[in-house]
């Protein structure tokens, strides 16, 4: 069905979903960073609680899932069409100068997806459906999401896995932001060069920020 939408429409959907995911990542990262700045985990747990219960956020959670699914589905469809567009490959290829990671979006995306599943099992589904430790903050009982995270990140394999995963996220993001702007037609001779910089900066900040958390926790134990 999605095949019938034009290539440009699909790319626009891809870009909007992608930008939305980037926003989510920024929010997610800001909350996670609270873990590093507040040893009591109070702020983090309060934020996690807010995210888990606030009705507006609940709605957005569904939107977020939708966004992911859309991004992944449309990404797959685009990719399949792209493969079909060149049934016979070149003997020697890929010497053209391109934005490097742009050629591997499906691969980096795939890695992200694979780990995403593990990640969701580790944290999200635990929090939603599993048994959770609890903690008292300001006289009220909250789920202690923080301790869950910290305990996970004390195991070396988990940390390594996360670092690798987040590196791939960084690779994906390197070609994400400016590409999305281009897909949306937001291009300007003055400002577009900056979009490349912003894209790379986002990739480094988001991936780097996320990587910091398991690494710091692991080293600090």
């Amino acid at each position: 069905m999605a095949f019938k939408y034009s290539s440009v429409t699909k790319k626009v959907v891809m870009a909007l979903a992608g930008l939305f995911l980037i926003t989510f990542l920024i929010v997610h990262l800001s909350i996670n960073l609270l873990l590093l700045f507040d040893d009591s985990r109070e702020l983090f747990n309060l934020a996690a609680h807010f995210m888990a219960t606030n009705p507006v956020i609940q709605v957005f959670q569904i939107v977020l899932f939708g966004g992911f699914i859309l991004h992944i589905l449309v990404g797959l469809i685009l990719q399949i069409q792209n493969w079909m567009a060149r049934p016979t490959r070149y003997k020697v290829e890929g010497y053209s100068h391109t934005s490097f990671f742009s050629k591997f979006m499906i691969h980096t995306g795939g890695v992200i997806l694979a780990f995403l599943v593990i990640h969701l099992i580790n944290f999200f589904f635990k929090a939603k459906f599993g048994e959770m430790p609890e903690v008292m903050i300001n006289g009220e009982l909250y789920e202690d999401m923080g301790i869950l995270v910290i305990e996970k990140f004390r195991e070396l394999p988990v940390v390594v896995m996360y670092v690798v995963w987040l590196l791939f996220l960084g690779f994906h993001l390197d070609h994400a932001f400016h590409s999305a702007l281009q897909s949306l037609g937001l291009n300007h001779s003055k400002y577009t060069p900056a979009a490349f910089g912003i894209s790379r900066a986002l990739a480094i900040l988001i991936a780097g920020g996320f990587i910091l958390i398991p690494v710091v926790i692991f080293i600090a134990q």
């Binding site: 034009s6 290539s7 934005s99 050629k103 400016h178």
Partner: peptide, 17 residues
Amino acid sequence: VAEMDNQGFGNCTNTGA
């Protein structure tokens, strides 16, 4: 754009090649 898709060309990933 419709005819371009119809001819079976791939989509744009903005690689710049």
